[in-house]
């Protein structure tokens, strides 16, 4: 495993997570360093989304702690985590369907700091997602699933975040569109933004990420570089169907 010399932007330390009396995640630790694209993969109900919810401050860990940008995350409304520089691309995209793509992006830069740099952000985001250029004035809800996913990522980038977390960006997309979205994520990662990418689509994630964690039934089963995991017998058998 590569050695981290700087402190990670995000570190999840031995967290137990759940809802009410139901514990979903047990003793999970993971971290994302500067400029890394890290995958968090696992099957349905393995606890991936629950970890993202905790990172966004929507639920409080039963035990352990989560440190983002040098500060522990306490239960907070999601908008407060956005203000701290965490961009969350949620499952199902959660766009504003009747607003134009342009307006969706502008709303992404609502917070004062982001608003000050809005024009520049918009240009940068359009350069990253040239496929959106033709649709800037169309209602976001009329775009294809793949394009909508790109709008969701672009909207999150308008925040000028310190880190981005993504919840299943490939869900419900045709295979060709999954490739487009993954390529877009790769482009975003190349800008140096640290990303934690949660996915069921293990094959696609291992193809783009630097490192990954494999979650099974709420516990970490494996972790390692993408190359190591691609060669690991458990991953090959359980997730890649080889």
């Amino acid at each position: 495993m590569p050695q981290e010399f700087t402190s990670p932007i995000l570190s999840v330390e031995n967290v137990d997570l759940g809802y009410g009396a139901l514990q979903v995640v047990t003793d999970v630790s993971l971290h994302v360093g500067a400029g890394e694209l890290v995958g968090l993969v696992g099957g349905n109900g393995s606890g991936k989304s629950t970890i993202l919810r905790a990172i966004s401050g929507m639920i409080t860990p039963f035990g352990g702690r989560i440190v983002f940008d040098g500060e522990a995350i306490r239960a907070a409304a999601p908008h407060q985590m956005a203000a701290r520089g965490l961009a969350h691309v949620p499952m199902g995209r959660q766009l504003f369907p009747n607003m134009s793509v342009r307006e969706n992006l502008l709303v992404g830069a609502t917070l004062p700091a982001a608003r000050a740099a809005r024009a520049r952000s918009l240009e940068e985001v359009r350069a990253l997602f040239p496929e959106l250029d033709a649709h800037m004035d169309a209602p976001a809800g009329q775009l294809s699933g793949g394009q909508q996913q790109m709008v969701a990522i672009a909207r999150a980038l308008m925040l000028r975040p310190k880190m981005m977390i993504m919840d299943e960006p490939s869900i419900g997309l045709a295979p060709r569109l999954v490739k487009d979205v993954m390529a877009a994520i790769r482009r975003v990662a190349h800008t140096g933004l640290p990303i934690l990418l949660v996915e069921q689509n293990v094959k696609q994630v291992l193809a783009v990420c630097d490192r990954a964690y494999v979650l099974e039934n709420g516990r970490l089963a494996l972790e390692g570089s993408a190359a190591e995991l691609q060669g690991h017998p458990l991953v090959r058998k359980a997730y890649l169907g080889l």
């Binding site: 966004s56 949620p90 959660q94 766009l95 502008l106 709303v107 609502t110 982001a114 608003r115 999150a156």
Partner: peptide, 25 residues
């Protein structure tokens, strides 16, 4: 207005609005 746009965004998708930093409460 900015605030008006935040109102429309909240009406269209509350979670989406919250995640871009709008205090929907």
């Amino acid at each position: 207005t900015e605030r008006g746009r935040a109102v429309r965004a909240t009406a269209e998708n509350r979670l989406g609005a919250e995640l871009v930093g709008i205090d929907t409460r």
